[in-house]
Nucleic acid binder design. Sequence first.
DNA 1: GCCAACGTTGGC
DNA 2: GCCAACGTTGGC
Length: 156
Amino acid sequence: MRYWLMKSEPDVFSFDDLAAAPARTTSWEGVRNYRARNFMREMAAGDRVLYYHSNASPPGIAGVAEVARTAYPDHHARDPESPYHDPKASEEKPIWEMVDVRAVGSLSRLVSLDELKADPRLAEMLVVQRGQRLSVMPVTEQEYRTVVELGGGIVE
DNA sequence: GCCAACGTTGGC
DNA sequence: GCCAACGTTGGC
């Protein structure tokens, strides 16, 4: 099993929104960055995901999710009405892909970006590194365990 | 709202 | 292939 971090703006779709969704699952459409897409292609069902709230106060990790479905074409790219529309995408070459993500549980308390930065065990985490704007990134098992510990465990 | 740090686009 | 202009992300 591998571990990942995925960013979402809570004003748009928070961890609580995911937990309240049908089957506690949603499709993760709208990733329009090749590195992030390539990471999604590497995901396997059951991989754990740290659910990060960006553009929040404070920003930080709110909960844990899991990959419910591996990468498949993001049809929103072919929808001219969608904010995620990409005129270069076609049925033959969808370009963009998404995965499905299911809520596992929230952390007992949110682990803020400041806390992530303050913990020496997390110094290598991509999300704490300057200028890192990827919305999907890998996390090591140790980093994952440390974050869950800082968050007081998972409330299922 | 500001702006640094990117990634992308397109002229050449 | 270079690189300036532009758009986006996301913390602050």
